[in-house]
Design a binder for these strands. Structure first.
Length: 638
RNA sequence: GCCCCUUUAGCUCAUUUGGUAGAGCAACUGAUUUGUAAUCAGUAGGUGGUCUGUUCGAAUCGGACAAGGGGCACCA
């Protein structure tokens, strides 16, 4: 007779085999009420699942992430049920729970409209109200396939085929409707409650393969309570308010236009921000021993053929033909140019590691559907560098790069960083022994950094393993930014060499490294992270000075000159407007500091300060204030 | 690139079923000299994304293209 071990360590002994629900009831009535599914020895099961032997059981409620997933999985079944009722002939593909919600992929000729979504939602609520019981049946493989073949549900047939031999094939019924599904599911359709919402329709390839048919995917979200649903919708709204495309327009930082899709037209304010970021990085890299170079944007085809880009990267490259019938490529990467700088003149082992940095503008022909504001563009500036070193130096140099990246992210307000490590892919160049060495070197650097990391097996570049740096922003979103790649290939292809101790020529290892990846992209991330309220040192307009009346204009202009001379990005607003009007306008423009000078300030040689996000007014002596401002304006070079 | 949607004044949006476009904010002019999130009045502003078809007549209906948006694929 089964002895059930509970998560708190206690045991309950039953006289006969029991269902999950009976276990929950034995623990408490309220738990049984809240129970959604159970976990038996780590496997998720229905509440109706019969436990026959001793096992560890956990009753799962909506407070567990597995419980939330179960609710969403049920909701997507109910959606599919509603869709098939309303739109007979619609075929089903798959419908899993995902982060914050669920989707189901359908195959149907006519597109679903927003009005259809409303109808589906209404129908779903009816289904929930009917509270139809869930029932599981186990079918034979062949019977299942024949059944779905007859119905013309070709995706279900494919799914049956992909279930490993020996696994049971389960069908879940909700009332009369049923679906092929591994489960588990809640006891009845009423269990999910009505706190769901269908959010959007989108195209999606069957099995994520662009060679397959495009299905219609309906996304939705589902929560245990109305409050959680409202909170989620609010969160989405907040994220929309931070959208860098919207803020970029409002703050007059940049724009895009038809003539050059995916390329940024930087306005004065955006360009100031861009330059300031570069200024910071320059200082940071100079301290770290980098030498900044700059290489041509357009290079002859032969170089790209030698480097392998022409073959491997050609479809993403812009090319141009000149009147003398030569073909040039606009660089999509900086590395070949950088290697040419290395190649110029004789290099000795004493020169290594040699770190050459470049703020290089690259162009890549990205698929049109991939473009997205500043985050995915066709022309962008990499904060690139290539470190030429020996194999023995890989670990140390990788660690140094990692530490530099972490420090920089921290300076810019990002404390949460995780790493993604990718090792050798199937298609690769170089000896396995060298791969062993470079992988070990990179991994050792990661371990020494003590950061959380995930391993992406086989996702490395063809020339070497890589690390990607992912940072988490203020509202919990992850962004992939920096990258560090070990390259045992390009230097050789492009004929790089150095003279070693023994007088022989050797080929150096090259580390590719980008801190933010793309400055354009990073600025987009910065804007969203700070919701446009950039830190003082980065703000394109740092200070606006407002006179109360015309009488204070001279004082204000004089103060402006003092700040301007010190390099503060400062403006005066002498317009004939009320102070309320100006405060509102400059606050909305996200100027970090507003200075107000009226009769009182002029007579006392003081300035009243209002900082963005605060209604507090503070009055300072003029000299003291200037000193404070200069301190805030320093680059964060810790 | 693929599926769906969108495109009207500088910005945000309106114009029921086809009868050549309106508002708020911004801009400009004038008045107002103002103490911490919108002072008042007036003026001007549009080949309705582009091309094309249907029609006596198209912002409105059809088609093509482009850009943008949401996803998918892609991100070397």
């Amino acid at each position: 007779m089964p002895i059930i071990k509970l998560p708190d360590g206690s045991n309950i002994e039953f006289q006969k085999k029991v269902t999950g629900l009976e276990v929950a009831e034995k623990i408490s009535k309220s738990l049984a009420k809240q129970a959604l599914i159970i976990s038996v020895d780590g496997e998720l099961k229905d509440l109706t699942h019969v436990i026959e032997k001793n096992s560890s059981v956990k009753i799962i409620t909506h407070k567990d992430s597995d419980g939330l997933d179960a609710i969403r999985h049920d909701t997507t079944h109910i959606m599919a049920m509603a869709v098939q009722e309303l739109f007979p002939g619609t075929k089903l593909a798959i419908g899993p729970a995902i982060k914050d919600g669920f989707y189901y992929d359908f195959s149907r000729k006519e597109p679903f409209t927003p009005i259809d979504l409303e109808k589906i939602e209404k129908k779903m609520k009816e289904i929930v109200e009917k509270d139809q019981p869930t029932r599981k049946e186990v079918w034979e493989r062949k019977e299942t396939k024949d059944h779905y073949k007859k119905l013309g549900e070709k995706y279900k047939v494919e799914l049956v085929d992909s279930i490993p031999a020996g696994n049971e094939i389960s069908i879940y019924y909700h009332g009369k409707w049923y679906d092929l599904c591994r489960g588990p599911h809640l006891l009845s359709t009423g269990k999910i409650s009505k706190h769901f919402k269908l959010t959007k329709v989108a195209g999606a390839y069957w099995r994520g393969d662009s060679n397959n048919e495009m299905l219609q995917r309906i996304y939705g979200t589902s929560w245990p309570t109305q409050k959680e649903l409202d909170d989620y919708l609010k969160r989405i709204e907040e994220a929309e308010k931070r959208d860098h495309r919207k803020l970029g327009k409002e703050m007059d930082l940049f724009h895009f236009r038809e003539e050059s899709p995916g390329a940024v037209f930087w306005h004065e304010k955006g360009w100031i921000l861009f330059q300031r970021l570069i200024e910071y990085m320059r200082m940071k890299q100079r301290f770290a021993g980098y030498k900044e170079i700059n290489t041509p944007e357009i290079l002859d085809r032969s170089l790209w053929e030698k480097s392998g880009h022409w073959e491997k990267f050609g479809e993403h490259m812009y090319t141009s033909e000149t009147p003398d019938d030569k073909i040039f490529a606009i660089k999509p990467m900086n590395c070949p140019g950088c290697v040419q700088v290395f190649n110029q003149g004789l290099k000795s082992y004493r020169d290594l590691p040699l770190k050459l940095s470049e703020f290089g503008k690259v162009h890549r022909y990205e698929p049109s559907g991939a473009l997205h504001g500043l985050l995915r563009v066709r022309a962008f500036t990499q904060d690139d560098a290539h470190i030429f070193c020996t194999e023995d130096q890989i670990t140390q140099e990788s660690l140094t790069v990692t530490n530099l990246i972490l420090k920089i992210y921290k300076d810019l307000g990002f404390e949460n960083v995780i790493l993604k490590y990718s090792d050798r892919p199937e298609k690769r160049v170089g000896e396995d022994s060298v791969w062993d060495k470079s992988e070990a070197a990179l991994l050792s650097a990661i371990k020494q950094s003590k950061l959380e990391y995930t391993i992406n097996k086989g996702e490395g570049a063809f020339y070497g393993p890589k690390i990607e740096f992912v940072l988490r922003d203020a509202i919990g979103r992850d962004w992939q930014c920096g990258t560090l790649q070990v390259d045992l290939n390009l230097p050789g292809r492009l004929g790089a060499s150095y003279v070693d101790k023994d007088g022989t020529k050797k080929v150096p290892v090259m580390l590719h490294r980008a801190l933010f990846g793309s400055l354009e992209r990073f600025i987009g991330i910065l804007i969203e992270n700070y919701a446009g309220k950039l830190p003082f040192w980065l703000a394109p307009t740092q200070v606006v000075i407002l006179p109360i009346t015309e009488e204070n204009n001279d004082y204000v202009k004089n103060l402006f000159e003092d700040l301007f001379k010190e390099g503060i990005k400062c403006e005066v607003d002498l317009r004939n407007q009320k102070i309320n009007y100006k405060i509102r306008e400059h606050s909305l423009a996200k100027v970090p500091m507003i200075l107000v000078c009226g009769k009182k300030e002029v007579s006392e040689s003081t300035v009243t300060v209002r900082r963005l996000g605060s209604e507090k007014q503070e009055t300072f002596k003029r000299e003291e204030l200037i000193k404070n401002i200069l301190t805030s304006n320093k680059l964060p070079l810790n």
